[in-house]
Design a protein around this nucleic acid. Structure first.
Lengths: 192, 192
DNA sequence: CCTACCGATCGGTAGG
DNA sequence: CCTACCGATCGGTAGG
């Protein structure tokens, strides 16, 4: 049983890497089997289907983001500080499990219904809660009076390149990277 | 002949839309044939292969960006103004042919060699030239003294969400969108 | 965990 | 532009 769940974990990690590198559709169960030194049919002792793997990756990561959001919402600090905490959240999640987050970001659209709909709901909820914080910041006069959705999506995608880029040269430490990104984004958003 | 090139154009546009919506690998030639009211085999009177379509999309767009870069490099203005012009370039290209740019952005990795290598070279060249402008701006004391690559990629990806988002609600005009994004990014990058 | 195999679908070709 | 069809590969199952 513990052997079993370990093996499943190995399969999930190999799958995340393949999905990130080749995409979900271009990854075959035989590719995945090769990566974990198994025959394709043996994979089905550990997982139910190819899509179940994608579901696990997508929903696990969605819940990591939502859990972080829930914590940050409860902080008794300014909107600006909450936004800074959210930027750090995105960077920390990326650092923790880069391949999985990348696959989650790029491959969720291959979910079938009803999973696709459920996933979109979670995502929508995360965005709404993020947007509410931004709107509070604008109301409070902390942030530039721009459209909240422009601020939201600019911020969102600004941290997304990390997922494609984190691996190569490491002349830049993760901490340095984090502080520079926060400098750029907060100065871009903050009023004066 | 002119009929022929028109039909080819229709096929390329339908393909870009399918590649954007489902991804290159998940789009079959039968999907594409249905979209243009043809049988799959008839597509091959207009195009040589599935990958040739992807090549056309990827290299056409790469050349649009490079042509814009060449023009902007020759302007006799400050680095900050060149960067503003580059941000506008990205937004304008997105507005002109949204589906094609999205497919180019997300699906180039499915190119086979030697096209993949050639594509990466063009991309690398574009990034280097962009980075040189950013570095000049830092040298000149116009931009915050951060790592040029952090500024580059933050800026790059900040405009990328447009590709996924441009379509829906149009309560925001494209001009308003453009000016807000430039406000956020330039204030984030500019010193003081 | 494997061998053997399934029906479906893939990109693409032959031939008209 | 179509019908008919190719070999290869797909996700997955049967049976041990």
């Amino acid at each position: 049983m513990s052997d079993n769940s370990t093996k499943k974990q190995i399969i999930l990690e190999a799958a995340a890497r393949l999905f990130r590198d080749k995409g979900y559709s271009a990854t075959s169960m035989r590719d995945l089997a090769d990566a974990v030194q198994l025959k394709a049919s043996s994979l089905y002792n550990h997982i139910a289907s190819k899509e179940e793997i994608l579901q696990t990756i997508c929903f696990d990561n969605a819940h990591r983001f939502l859990a972080g959001m829930t914590e940050i919402e409860q902080l008794q600090v300014s909107a600006t500080h909450k936004i800074e905490a959210l930027i750090r959240l995105h960077i920390h999640i990326a650092k923790e499990d880069l391949t999985s987050v990348t696959a989650f970001n790029d491959e969720w659209r291959h979910l079938s219904e009803p999973h696709l709909g459920n996933f979109k709901s979670l995502r929508k909820s995360y965005e709404s809660r993020f947007k509410a914080i931004i709107e509070a910041g604008i109301q409070a006069g902390e942030l530039r009076p721009l459209h909240a959705s422009v601020l939201l999506y600019t911020l969102f995608s600004s941290v997304r390149w990390l997922y494609d880029w984190f691996k190569p040269e490491r002349s830049l430490s993760a901490d340095m990277l984090e502080s520079e990104i926060i400098t750029i984004l907060l100065n871009g958003m903050i009023l004066k």
